[in-house]
Write a protein that binds this DNA or RNA. Structure first.
Lengths: 170, 170
DNA sequence: GCGGAGACTGAGCAAATTGTCCACCGAATC
DNA sequence: GATTCGGTGGACAATTTGCTCAGTCTCCGC
């Protein structure tokens, strides 16, 4: 058996080992997402139950967290992507700031970070002028002292996980 | 009709207006991705053909770019996320650098940016020690002069687009 | 060496879903 | 007034799903 999975202390924090079949399955689904389990089993030349079991297992272990739909903000008119570094007043902590940021639809993700800044968030806007509006919203959040923004001009490598899956799966 | 779509100069660069039904449809699919068209139509209380048409239209216009599967790098053992700012030698341009970066599985996305740095990439690694290895890979890329990294300690707001869809869709 | 345990196969079945038609309706457009 | 477009509701065959079963194989511990 090549499908060992090592358990961690914390519940749910399972690190899963992926084998080649898992990797091919994920790659196949990523390439043609609308095909079903049966079609997958045909393409991969394994039994349907096997595909089903693999998908169930990966979903259970948290490797596959969902199945889209993947939205392109640019297609909705949000052409501008920017990364905003936040400096915050430390007294109250990050949580209330993050909660407020979560209320802004244009804020797509927020991280707390090491280094010069305290938080990093990815935002989108309809234009550079609109970006100013979004940044103003962020600056207005209680606890935010200062922000620095960099605009993404181009995205030569869009977000992807397939190479990682391949690397993990042999 | 409230589904107007305004055309742009460049082919494919369509900015699409989303209505409330579209937004609800996307939200529904995001919440329960494995339900089919028929189930969607029942939940949204519209005809199946309508759901099918909406999905086809959003897919055609590029709003929906795909249907996962969404992979969680952490579940694969890549617990550490970092953002690496690259300073590159400008002579050859960004492209060859991006091409090399794309060969590294741990590099999940790459942007060219304004501001102090030249490129920003998001990378993952199995540990802080492993991150050093990944960064070394990046530094070794021809044209990369220097890097600055910030590690993501926590992600209070994970990547999301639903609020944006809701905002765009009324 | 002798059992398990786990994974995969191949098959079968009823139930549900899909893809694809159709005709009809109402609203907005010309 | 005629046309176009989006939505409705129905129908159909073909496919897929969810589930179960028995049999085989390999790996592992006793």
């Amino acid at each position: 058996m090549d499908n060992l999975l090592s358990l961690r202390a914390t519940e749910g924090e399972t690190v899963m080992t992926i084998d080649h079949l898992d990797a091919r399955l994920v790659a196949l689904l990523a390439a043609e997402p609308r095909i079903g389990v049966l079609e997958c089993s045909r393409r991969l030349d394994v039994a349907r139950g096997t595909v089903q079991a693999r998908l169930d297992r990966m979903a259970a272990k948290g490797v596959i967290t969902g199945y889209g739909p993947d939205i392109d903000p640019a297609a909705l008119g949000f052409d501008v992507t920017a990364f905003v570094t936040l400096h915050i007043r430390q007294v109250a902590g990050h949580v209330p700031v993050a909660d407020q940021l979560a209320l802004v639809p244009e804020v797509l993700e927020v991280h707390t970070i090491t280094g010069g800044g305290d938080m990093l968030c990815r935002v989108v806007a309809r234009s550079n002028a609109d970006l100013q509006r979004v940044i103003d919203l962020i600056v207005d959040v209680q606890g935010v002292v200062r922000t620095e923004s960099v605009i993404a001009l181009d995205t030569p490598v869009p977000y992807r996980t397939l190479p990682l899956v391949r690397a993990a799966g042999g």
